[in-house]
Design a binder for these strands. Sequence first.
DNA 1: CTGAAAGCGCTAACAG
DNA 2: CTGTTAGCGCTTTCAG
Lengths: 338, 338
Amino acid sequence: MADVARACGVSVMTVSYALNRPDRVATDTRRRVVEAARRLGYSGPDPRARSLRRSISDCLGVILGEQLRYAFDNPMVTRFLAGISDELVQSGEALTIISTAGGDQDPNRVAAAAVDAFVVWSTATDDPALLAAIATGRPVVVQGGPQLPGTQCVSIDDRAAAYAITEAAFAKSRRPAVLSFPLTREREPGVGYGFDPGSSTFPVTSARLHGVADYCQARQISNDQVLVSIAARNDESHGREAARALLAHRPDAVMAMSDELARILLEEAVASGLRVPDDIAVTGWDDGPAAAQLGLTTVSNDLRGQGAICARLALGRQTENPYVPWQVIHRATTRLAR
Amino acid sequence: MADVARACGVSVMTVSYALNRPDRVATDTRRRVVEAARRLGYSGPDPRARSLRRSISDCLGVILGEQLRYAFDNPMVTRFLAGISDELVQSGEALTIISTAGGDQDPNRVAAAAVDAFVVWSTATDDPALLAAIATGRPVVVQGGPQLPGTQCVSIDDRAAAYAITEAAFAKSRRPAVLSFPLTREREPGVGYGFDPGSSTFPVTSARLHGVADYCQARQISNDQVLVSIAARNDESHGREAARALLAHRPDAVMAMSDELARILLEEAVASGLRVPDDIAVTGWDDGPAAAQLGLTTVSNDLRGQGAICARLALGRQTENPYVPWQVIHRATTRLAR
DNA sequence: CTGAAAGCGCTAACAG
DNA sequence: CTGTTAGCGCTTTCAG
C-alpha cells in the first residue's frame, strides 16, 4: 500500500480511502490510485493487518466436535453447514471450520482462530473446545446445546420431540428399544436394559432420553424394560455394530437417534429376515433425504434453518432466538398410521 | 497480554515467550504467567495480531466457484474437502471456505481472506476468483484445472479417462449421447447434435469432450452424430431437465459427466420404461457411493486423495505433484462386460 | 534467562 | 478532499 501511495504521489491514507471509501476521494485521485494498484499488482489491503486494526475478520467460525472430515460425511452436519452458508453468502463472510477431535490442542486451536464469532455444533457440557470459545469473549451460539452462560442456544424441544417419536416407535410394542448416541465424551458403546437420562453429558442425547423416559412413565413402562444400544459414533461402522448388538436381543420396536442409525438398523433387520414394521418398527431423527427414500418415520427439525439462525445470531444480525418447530413425520416403518 | 505482564510484574516479551516457547523461560516464571493468564481470563495471543506479525494464518482457503451451499450438497466436492481435511487435521490448520457465486465482489472476497494458500475447486480458465487468488502471490493449487502460470494443478488425465469411459458407454451403440456439464461460465443449457471440445472454458469439461472426440475419431464417428445435452448445473433440477431433454431424442447410450447426472438419467430412463443397458447404456464419473449402489459403470478417480495432495502442495509440505491414477469401473449399466 | 526497541500493514480520528 | 498522528497486539531482533 505504501508502494502504491508512493507511485502516485499521495499518502497511504488516500490509498486506503480510495480503496475502502471510494466516495470520500476525488474521482481523479481514485482512478490514479486504482490504476497504480493494478499496475503494481497490489491486490488490496492485507487482510491480517486490516483485521487487526478493525478487529473484524469477516469470518464465522464453526466448531465441530469431530474429525474435520465428519463435517463432510454426515448429512445432518452438512445440512446445518449449508444453512449457515446460505446466510453468509449474502454478506460475503467466509466460513472457517475448526475441528476439535478431542486432542489437547483443541482449546488452543479455537483460541487461535481469526473469526468474529463461533457457532458450535451440538456437543457435551464439558467440552473444552466450547469452553475455549466462550473464554475468547466473542459471541458463541450453540446448536442443540448445552446452554451455558455466555452462549445462545438454538434447538428444537428435543425432549418433547423424543416423546412424540417414541410414541410412534413403541406403538403396539412389547420389546421396545433405543438405538442411542453415546452418553459421554468417552463414547463407550454397549447394550443392555435400562437407562438414565441424566447420565449423558450430551444435552441433546440427554433430552431425548428424557423424552423416552417421559413416554415410559406415561405408559407405566419401567425404564428397565427398555433395551438400549449405544453407538460410539453416528457413523457406518459403529452404527452397524450397535445395530447388530441390539438386534441380537430381538426388539420389536426401535427408536433410533438419527436417520443414519435407523437406516443401518433397517438394513440389518431386513437382512436377518425381519418384516418392517410387523416384526420390528423403526424410527429415525432429522428427516434427511434417506428418510423419505426409506419411508422412515422420523422427526423433522429443519437443521438448515437452524444453521441460518445460528449464523445470524452469532453475527449479531438478529437478537431474537425464535422457537424452532419440529414435527413427527409418519411413514411406513411404524405400526401406527395415526 | 500487557495486562498479564503487568499482573505478574514481567514484560510482555516474557509473557509471549512463556506462551509460545515455554522452554525459553524459567519454569517458575512460566508458571506465574500461565496462572495470571488464567486468572485474568486471557485466552492466548490475539490471532489477528499474531498473524500480522508472523504473516502466517494457519489456515488454508478453499475456493468453490459455486454457492457456498454447493460445497455441502455435492458428493464430489464433499469428498474432495474431506481429503483436504484429512491433511489439515494433523497439523491443526483451519479450513476457510470461500464461495464465489459469480458476483462482482468475488475477487475482493478472495483477496480479503486471511489464509496462507488457496486450493481451488476446478473452474473455468477465465474465472476472476482464480485470477484474484493468483494475484495475491500466495500459493495456489487447482484441482482439475485450469493450469495457469503461478498455479499447480492436481488432476487425473481427464482426456484419456474420457476416452476409456466413452468406449464403455458407446459399445454397440447406434445413437450415442453425452450428458455434459456446462461449457462456459454462462452455463447455458441446451440439447443438440455435435460438439466442439475447444468451445468449453472449463478445462475439465473440455478435456472430457476431447476424450469423446478422440474415441469418435478412432471409430470413424462424426462428432455431429453425437447427441449432447448440457446441464446448466450438476444438481438435481438442472440435471433432470437436461436428462429429459436428452431422452426425448431417444439415445441408446449416454456418457454422463458425473454419477449424479447418470443417476438422474437412469431414474428418468427407467421411469419411461427403458431397460438398462439393453435399451440404453449409461456411464457416470467419480465412482461415488451412489455408483456402487446403482451398479453404474463409472470412472474412479480418488477425489479424496486429490484433496490431500492439493492441501500438501499448497502448504508446501510436498513439492512433487504425483500422477493421479484413474480407472474405469465396469458394472451393470453398460453393454460390455469386458 | 529477561527486556527494550522497532515495526508487521493498516485505518480511526482528527486536522488542515 | 487529503494528510498527520497514533496506535491495533503481537513477535523478531538484539542487548543486557
